[in-house]
Nucleic acid binder design. Structure first.
Lengths: 209, 209
DNA sequence: TTATGATCCGAGGGATTCCTCGGGATTTGT
DNA sequence: ACAAATCCCGAGGAATCCCTCGGATCATAA
């Protein structure tokens, strides 16, 4: 009865109450993950917090990893859609405001649940995380490249690399701030400074180099 | 015999061979952590990789967490000393070169072992990580503030906040790159772009705002 | 109503993990 | 050389943890 071998496929919920327990389990998983960490987030504890039997949990999720994989997927989709919505309602003509709305969108996307964001981000075991995020990343990188080519003065620098650095910087800083000092996400200072930094980075006018 | 209750204090190695096994255990822990992850890095496996009995391991480390706490501490100290050495041998007059050497130092500090850096960084259970790192952070922030006040033209912006953003950005980007595409650490491009970005960020308050 | 399927349940098995404990081997001090 | 201190060891116990399985309970359709 070797563990982690059978992998029988699970049902997906059809009735209303089934969908309810399905949600309850994921929500409980998120809460337990945030306040106990991945290791302490045992399936038994999750089921208990969700108010369902452990059997019900394994009725819909083949194993522990799957729960957090789906949780991560949900969080990514939610973040990404919010991100797009924020960008869609922004003026596309001026570079500085374009950058600002991107930054704001990124901050807001994380601000919805900084703790969950950090926890999920640190879940290395879930190699599911990367490929999915990578697609989004690429897509967004192209967007940025096009915006740079039509609005920025880059001289002879490689717009592709510049876009990479911009994305890396934005994402990394926001995620880092979310982890170290989440309160800063609510102040406008972060948005201002990040915007200024990125704008100057792609606007050439200087004495040097 | 409740686990995790006794916490009897452990000896510290005095003889040479003891010091050797002590090191062997920590090195094995690092290797196992990097290639299997924290969960799979069991004390039994570490002892085996180190070529010592499990008993010997618990002769010097009270529990699993302690091993990685010390490992993290070692890595921090090593990184920090290398960082300072790199900075000490850099000219302090020109702002751009100053920034460049800071960036280079930060990259090199991580490049020594990117995989271990990432793994350790993602070890949330070790709340030991933060307070220790925080001290270093503060110290370095002051350094930066002084450098900015004497070399940069910040206008009426708050140098303290600017320093925070610079540090956040540098650290976050380097750590992120180390995790996503470690190869980039070896190319000069990252150093160039980061330097450019930071330099422009604190120079010339040009057209906007 | 009754049959069929969906949903829920939780005791407990197999596996694994952390760590102890008693004692053997080696080094050091005298 | 002998005692004390230090170091090394690994079988195995207690505690979890993940997950299964057989059956109870509920919903829906005929």
């Amino acid at each position: 009865m070797g563990r982690r071998i059978s992998r029988k496929p699970r049902k997906s919920p059809t009735q209303a109450r089934a969908k309810a327990t399905w949600n309850a389990i994921l929500e409980a998983a998120a809460r337990v993950l945030v306040q106990r960490g991945y290791e302490k987030a045992t399936t038994d504890r999750i089921a208990e917090r969700a108010g369902v039997g452990i059997g019900s949990l394994y009725e819909y999720f083949p194993n522990k990893e799957a729960i957090f994989a789906i949780l991560n997927q949900q969080w990514n989709e939610e973040r990404w859609s919010g991100f797009q919505a924020e960008l869609a309602s922004a003026p596309q003509d001026d570079l500085q405001t374009l950058i600002r709305s991107t930054v704001r969108a990124r901050i807001n996307a994380t601000r919805r649940n900084p703790r969950l964001n950090s926890a999920l981000r640190n879940l290395i075991p879930l190699s599911v995380t990367l490929p999915q995020a990578r697609a989004i990343y690429e897509d967004f990188a192209e967007h940025t490249v096009r915006a740079l080519q039509s609005h920025a003065r880059l001289g002879d620098r490689d717009p592709r690399l510049v876009a990479q650095v911009m994305l890396h910087a934005t994402h990394a800083v926001v995620d880092n701030v979310a982890e170290i000092s989440p309160d800063l996400l609510d102040s406008p200072a972060l948005e201002d400074e990040l915007t200024l930094m990125l704008y100057r980075y792609v606007t050439e006018s200087g004495p040097s180099d």
